[in-house]
Structure formats: structure tokens, C-alpha cells
Simulated scan of single mutants.
Amino acid sequence: MRRILFPLIFGVAGLAILVSLGIWQLQRLAWKESILADIESRIAAQPVALPEAVSQDEDKYLPVTISGEMETGEIHVLVSVKQVGAGYRIIQPFSVDDRRILVDRGFVPTTAKSDARQTGAMQVTGNLHWPDEIDGFTPEPDVDGNIWFARDVPNLSAVLKTEPVLLVARSNTDPDVTPLPVDTAGIPNDHLQYAITWFGLALVWAAMTGYFLWRSRASSESDQQ
């Protein structure tokens, strides 16, 4: 009995830890799904006018409709679209009364990078957004070639001389530009896979513990004989 007591305690403790980690990931999954549901509800809400004082914390994903003038001058952000390939997001300044903000008009293929696009008076509906697209592997923009690798709102606004406010269009602003509206697809939610991994490890641990205890007991009985 003493020979198997320590392995039994060790095995049960390890199993409890692995199962608790799996349960924790299921709790995190429910939490993340709740957050995603709130974001999706906010994205799809009825559009409002552009707030006078925009807050990144309070107004992220806020649906907005603006009327004004799409100005000339573009920044091209390299992006890849499934089943289409590489291309660019077209970021331009937009005048609303006495204010200027950024508008992400959408996607064009690489072959259309230098094409002329519609400007002037128009109405745009979309969502305010401050994308988190920069990490330690993000290259510096090629300013001379007008190729950026992330929507860095503060830097984009500095270059185009606008407020640090980005409206990602979900309405069409040009026949040749495909809107890429804000959605939750880019928000990671891997908690179910993590839970399955922990529960799978728990099963393997339980099987190994059972096998080790069986071997220990068989060895003990053999010694007694």
C-alpha cells in the first residue's frame, strides 16, 4: 500500500490541476463569447452622428454616419483578403464641418494602388475604430512608396493632418473600392481549443496514472510471491 500511496496522491493531484485548467478555459470561453456578443451588438447598432468629443475607450465600434467631403491624399495599408489576395486599405482624410477625420474606405487590389478614386461631397456610414495591429514584428512604413503595414491611427492622422479618429466604412464610397467593415473575426477566441487540450491531457494523465498503479501493484504482488 505504501508503494502506491505516493503515486496515487501525485496522480490525483495532477489530474485535479489539469481538469481545473480545462474548467477555467470553459469559463473564459463564456466570458469571451459574452464580450464578442456585446461588440457585435454595438457594431450593428443604429448609426449616430459623429460625437463632438470622441473617446477611444467609450466610442470604439460606435456606428456613425458622416456627411462632408472626401479629400484627396491617400495612405495605403497592405492587407490580404481571403480568396482575393494582397491589396491595400485606402485611408483618406474626410472633412465634416470644421473637422477632419480618417476614413478607411476599404480594399483595392495591388494593381489598383495608383488608380484615381472618387472624392468630393458624400455620406459615409461605418464604425469608429482604433485597431491594435502593431507588434514587435510590424515593419516600419515605407513612406516613399506609400506602403504601410498597420493602421496606426496616431501616425496616420499626423501624416494626413486629421484628428486621431478612424471611421471604417461599411457603405460604398467608390465603385472600385470594396468596404472591409469592422467585425469580430480578428478578435482571438481560442478558449475552446485550450479547454479540449487540458481535458485531453487530463485523460492521458489519468490513463498513465492508472497504468503506473497497476504496474506497481503487480510488481508488489510478484515480490510477495
Rank of each mutant, 00 (worst) to 15 (best):
Asn189Trp: 12
Ile187Lys: 05
Ser95Phe: 00
Trp148Cys: 04
Val143Phe: 06
Pro164Thr: 15
Phe107Glu: 04
Asp97His: 05
Thr184Gln: 05
Leu128Cys: 08
Asp152Met: 07
Val177Asp: 11
Thr178Met: 14
Arg99Ser: 02
Arg117Ser: 08
Trp148Gln: 04
Thr184Ser: 14
Val159Phe: 00
Asp152Lys: 00
Gln193Arg: 10
Val96His: 04
Asn155Phe: 06
Gln118Ile: 04
Asp132Phe: 13
Asp132Ala: 15
Arg105Asp: 02
Thr184Pro: 04
Leu160Trp: 00
Leu166Tyr: 06
Gln92Pro: 00
Pro154Phe: 09
Thr197Val: 11
Ile187Met: 10
Val143Cys: 09
Arg170Ser: 14
Ile147Lys: 03
Ile147Asn: 01
Leu201Cys: 10
Gly145Cys: 10
Asp98Ala: 13
Thr110Leu: 14
Pro93Lys: 07
Thr184Gly: 06
Thr119Ile: 14
Ile134Gln: 08
Gln123Pro: 00
Gln118Phe: 03
Val96Tyr: 06
Leu192Tyr: 06
Ile91Leu: 09
Ala112Ile: 09
Gly126Cys: 11
Ile196Met: 11
Trp198Cys: 06
Leu102Pro: 03
Ser114Asn: 14
Glu133Gln: 15
Trp130Arg: 03
Leu166Phe: 13
Gln92Lys: 06
Gln92His: 01
Asp152Val: 05
Pro109Asp: 09
Val168Arg: 11
Pro109Thr: 13
Arg170Val: 12
Thr111Gln: 03
His129Tyr: 15
Gly136Pro: 00
Trp198Tyr: 08
Ile101Phe: 02
Leu167Val: 15
Trp148Asp: 08
Thr197Asp: 10
Thr125Gly: 08
Asn146Gln: 05
Ala158Lys: 13
Asp190Phe: 08
His191Trp: 05
Asn146Pro: 10
Leu160Asp: 00
Leu192Cys: 06
Asp135Trp: 01
Thr178Ile: 15
Asp135Arg: 01
Pro188Ile: 13
Ala112Ser: 15
Thr125Ala: 11
Val165Asp: 08
Phe107Tyr: 12
Leu102His: 01
Val182Ser: 04
Arg99Lys: 03
Ile90Asp: 07
Glu163Phe: 03
Ile134Cys: 02
Asp174Ala: 15
Thr125Asn: 10
Tyr194Asn: 03
Thr119Glu: 10
Pro181Gln: 12
Gly120Ile: 09
Thr178Gly: 01
Ala121Tyr: 05
Phe199Glu: 12
Ile134Arg: 05
His129Val: 15
